[in-house]
Design a protein around this nucleic acid. Structure first.
Lengths: 247, 247
DNA sequence: TCTAATGAAGTTGTAGGATGATATGTATAT
DNA sequence: ATATACATATCATCCTACAACTTCATTAGA
């Protein structure tokens, strides 16, 4: 677990800093889509680094689909819709409002995925889910190991949908939330709520075993709303049940 | 529009190929999390490229959170959960099965988001959505401009949820599907189905205007299932309604 | 003997220059 | 006027060298 901390706090390398700077320039609109970037040599002079560093920075931005380089011409800013990847800024995770949004997104993804998983799960899937569930309940306190098991439980359900994209997306969102909580925590321990948490998981698992999509979806929705509450995020109802009709 | 074609067909650069190779090695498990990568020199010999190219490749993998490099020690494979980004392989988009999975994911995301949008949309949101809708209907054929308007319509709805993450995710998935269709198409034109498509969009819009979450969700779900069918993907029911109880 | 300082070797990080490949515009020759 | 050849600009790749950092063995000293 310390390793992970160290990984997060990795020192900023020069290419990374250059890439971050250029990335901000693009995000902020100073460099609009279609615009041509300065040449590598100009950039290396501007930032006071070698051309090598500039190229590594550009390699990152290129991998993200943020810019496109054409030999003999130059590098150009691409439209946001052409991005090849989704990345969430670490800094933004510290904002509670963003955590609320993340939970909302997670609820949308996982609730319906739970229904899919209930309809499609194989015995092998159920076993994997059960294993994670047991590991979670095994810990008497809400420790890191328990959190890992919790995430694994959710990832295994996502895997049971048979849709690798769903698995990827849910894994990603959950991991973002984990890190977000990691920042926010340290002040409010929530150990005594373990039984509640485990109980919610058991209900999800039972619905999956029963192969009842509607029950699985409902249980998952209740769980995520509960989990959000437990970390101090009041989830503003993610379903149409609200039906206040806008205004 | 030709530009985008050119962008997609960009030649594979050497660092990109090396990064793709190493990425596959990691994904496939040949290099498990925690394992140390060969030194840059060894890699440059293995691939027959300069150390510079290897470094650019590593820069990409590092940006993705796939590996971590420590000066004086080496580079190490990180656990999948520590990935900092989601990326979808372009090659995978050509597989029809993957397109089916993408549509399923999209359905999950957009259906519920439509409900959220119906409950939260402001007049400004509605105007933006209406503008996109008009632009879509303006074209008498199903051309690229119309597709752009279509995507914009969906993105504006996502924006109306007030949740930037939802907007980001939906934009991303839609764009992936667009490119996926781009590959698969050229053989089966689907121009004559425009009215159907526009009609579905109108129903969604009307539900948003009425501020009716349930109706918006249903309309969106019907639309995406329809859109999938129109490109030859039979969506295997994304809701619990199936309720076949597993097996 | 044990401890601490020293130093050598290995690895990533950065710098700088040289050459190849590609696109663009210009000048020349037919 | 058109087409070819050339010059230029830019990215792509390669090469060498050195700096910064880590690890481990060696050695000096108590």
């Amino acid at each position: 677990m310390k390793q992970r901390l160290a990984a997060i706090g990795t020192v900023e390398t020069l290419p990374h800093r250059v890439a971050a700077f250029m990335s901000r320039e693009i995000e902020s609109g100073e460099l609009s889509p279609g615009a041509r970037l300065p040449t590598e040599q100009e950039l290396s002079e501007k930032f006071g680094v070698s051309r090598n560093v500039v190229r590594e920075a550009i390699a990152q931005l290129r991998a993200d689909g943020m810019i496109e380089a054409r030999q003999g011409i130059g590098a150009f800013v691409l439209a946001p819709q052409q991005r090849a990847s989704i990345r969430i800024d670490r800094e933004a995770l510290k904002d509670t409002n963003n955590m609320e949004r993340l939970f909302e997104l997670r609820c949308i993804l996982e609730a319906e995925s739970a229904a899919l998983a209930a309809a499609r799960r194989s015995q092998e899937h159920l076993d994997a889910i059960k294993t994670a569930l047991d590991r979670m309940g095994g810990e008497e306190r809400w420790e890191d190991g328990s959190i890992d098991a919790d995430l694994l439980f959710h990832r295994e359900i996502a895997r049971a949908t048979g849709n690798s994209y769903i698995h990827t997306f849910i894994s990603f969102v959950c991991e973002q939330i984990r890190q977000s909580i990691h920042y926010a925590r340290l002040t409010n321990p929530l150990h005594d709520l373990v039984e509640v948490n485990v109980g919610e998981h058991v209900r999800i698992y039972e619905a999956l075993v029963a192969g009842d999509p509607a029950a699985a979806e409902a249980a998952m929705r209740a769980h995520i709303i509960g989990a959000a509450n437990r970390v101090g995020v009041r989830l503003p109802l993610a379903r149409g049940e609200r039906a206040d009709g806008g205004r």
